[in-house]
């Protein structure tokens, strides 16, 4: 295993500070901290809070790039603080700011409610006519690995908001749904268990929907999980146009495969244990 350098380098953190009770506008405060190879920006922020300035506020949780809490603007690019090593993006100075295109609650904390409201408005769950089957399932839905592949990539979204911060349309257009909600809509539209595509297209095909995207591609560049929301939105546009031109294939949602005990077992497969529920 290669030895990591134990050398300590002094890096200047230029952190955006803002307290709504005391400050009219945000300002930048500089902290100089000792950085060793392997330290993430999150480690740096913890060092500031523990040793230099206990009033610094930011969101974090898992510290391993799966919860999506610590999205920030690091040297001009929106990304996760826990996932980014300081020495990979800075040599002497690191600018740390809150995610743009969101209101700032305090210091590095963005107000993500607009993004989450837009997400909720698109019904980000499996919707179909037979609601009883969803709420009280009596069998399995069949979905092939190919059908899963069509939307699996878009399920990796951790709702960190980095894509929304990077999008040029969202810089000026408050009402635009944004890459995260639209990618989520595409995730459910392509899920064969779901039948809500036409319902969602009232929003996705509307004035604030997918057509406000112009493929600048910054969302996919910023995404820390490789979700590629830009691709999801272009595929969404394709489906919207096909629906408008009545060229879309009429295919209902996948049906229940079989109820318990009704499937024909393959030979040499042992019988399932008795139901306990």
């Amino acid at each position: 295993m290669p030895e990591s350098s134990k050398a300590v380098r002094q890096i200047n953190f230029h952190v955006t500070r803002y307290n709504p009770e005391d400050d009219r506008i945000p300002y930048v405060k500089t902290y100089t901290i000792p950085v060793r190879e392997g330290m993430t920006v999150l480690d740096g922020l913890h060092y500031i809070k523990e040793n230099l300035d206990a009033t610094l506020a930011w969101r974090y949780s898992c510290r391993m790039g799966v919860c999506g809490s610590c999205g920030m603007l690091l040297n001009g690019r929106p990304t996760l603080a826990c996932n980014t090593q300081i020495l990979h993006i800075a040599t002497t100075d690191l600018a740390v700011g809150p995610l743009p295109n969101f209101d700032i609650v305090r210091d590095l904390v963005p107000d993500l409610t607009t993004m989450l409201d837009k997400h909720r408005a698109l019904k980000p769950y499996v919707t179909r006519a037979d609601e009883d089957e969803i709420n009280d399932p009596a069998g399995e839905f069949y979905q092939s690995p190919e059908e899963l592949e069509a939307y699996l990539q878009f399920t990796y979204c951790i709702k960190c908001g980095c894509c929304m911060a990077a999008c040029p349309t969202l810089a000026t257009d408050v009402r635009y749904l944004g890459p995260m909600p639209l990618a989520a809509a595409q995730r459910y539209n392509r899920d064969t268990r779901d039948d809500g595509r036409r319902e969602r297209s009232k929003l996705t095909g509307g004035a604030d929907g997918a057509f406000r995207c112009h493929y600048a591609g910054e969302c996919s560049r910023a995404c820390p999980k490789g979700v590629d929301p830009a691709k999801a939105i272009q595929l969404l546009k394709r489906q919207l146009v096909l629906d408008y031109l009545h060229l879309a294939r009429r295919k209902g949602p996948c049906q229940k495969l079989h109820g318990p005990g009704q499937g024909k077992p393959l030979p040499n497969v042992p019988a399932a244990p008795a139901r306990t529920v």
């Binding site: 709504p20 809150p98 743009p100 295109n101 969101f102 700032i104 107000d111 000026t172």
Partner: peptide, 8 residues
């Protein structure tokens, strides 16, 4: 809570 508009 008071907010600061951070749109670019």
């Amino acid at each position: 809570v008071q907010r600061h508009d951070n749109r670019l």
